[in-house]
């Protein structure tokens, strides 16, 4: 027995422990989902199944406005950040270590590591400092900045995977640079671009901190609105909104992953 190499999979109680951890992580989400279908007012007392709270959510004008704000910002930030990410990934493809390209790459990925509250405060101070008042535009700019790395990473991974031989082949077969991009690079990159765009969309939709600090009256996004509702007490309506938000995020991320899988299989 003692001569056997250590195998962590053989640790006693591993599967039990795993289930406890999963429960700890996901039980709260489960509770929210279950209680969004509760018939009663009490947030913690099950009184039977109903879709009343969903109906209430759909008839709440304020939630509608917050949702449309969220969608406008998320779609705009998705489009802008994906465009930036594609150009950056193509431009930085052959960046050498230690060169200017490497520094640019670091700057692009910075929002992933800089604490969000710092970015939020800095952006707020900066915008009011230069007197930028574009309404939702302010939010869109801020969201675009932190969405770029999410869109960038899958595109860059795909470019690395792809190599430059296929593009060389297109050049060799009488295509100029534009034709190479149009007929080879872009079609091969498309699944990664869509997947990057989805991730950017999802991270914009979920963002709370930056939106909270930057949004003026009338520009409340859905997460900020939910936070506002919470201060008036936990109502099952919140459960319903949260469940809807969760469901849409999961769908988007699943679609994004599916697209990445498609890229993998294709290459």
């Amino acid at each position: 027995m003692s001569s056997k190499p250590f195998d962590w999979k053989a640790t006693p109680g591993l599967s039990t422990l795993s289930w406890v951890v999963y429960l700890f992580l996901y039980a709260p989400l489960l509770v929210i989902i279950i209680y969004s279908f509760n018939a009663g007012r009490q947030a913690t007392l099950w009184e039977g199944f109903s879709l009343d709270w969903y109906a209430k959510v759909f008839h709440n004008r304020d939630i509608g406005i917050a949702l449309s704000n969220s969608l406008i910002v998320a779609v705009a930030a998705m489009i802008l950040s994906t465009m930036l990410a594609v150009t950056a990934a193509l431009g930085l493809r052959h960046a050498r270590a230690g060169g200017g390209g490497q520094i640019t790459l670091g700057l692009i990925l910075m929002p992933l590591v800089v604490p969000e509250i710092v970015v939020a405060v800095a952006t707020l101070v900066f915008f009011s400092g230069i007197g930028l008042k574009l309404g939702l535009g302010n939010l869109i700019i801020a969201h675009t900045v932190f969405c770029v790395p999410f869109a960038y990473l899958p595109i860059q991974a795909r470019l690395t995977d792809m190599g430059s031989a296929v593009e060389d082949a297109a050049r060799d077969l009488y295509s100029n640079e534009w034709q190479v991009f149009r007929r080879v690079t872009l079609p091969l990159l498309l699944p990664a671009i869509l997947s990057g765009a989805m991730l950017a969309f999802a991270s914009s939709l979920d963002d709370f901190l930056i939106s909270m600090l930057l949004a003026d009256a009338g520009q409340t996004t859905l997460p900020v609105y939910i936070y506002g509702m919470l201060r008036l007490g936990v109502s099952p309506e919140i459960n319903a909104v949260s469940t809807l938000l969760l469901a849409s995020s999961v769908v988007i991320v699943l679609v994004a992953l599916r697209m990445q899988g498609m890229t993998k299989r294709k290459s």
């Binding site: 190599g163 031989a165 060389d168 082949a169 297109a170 050049r171 060799d172 100029n176």
Partner: peptide
Amino acid sequence: PPFKRPVNTMFQSYALFPHLNVRKNIAY
């Protein structure tokens, strides 16, 4: 540039276009 030369290459990695079928590859 390569696209102006009547010279074609068979690449070591073949470099076929994965999004096109055989006929489309050859017709490119």
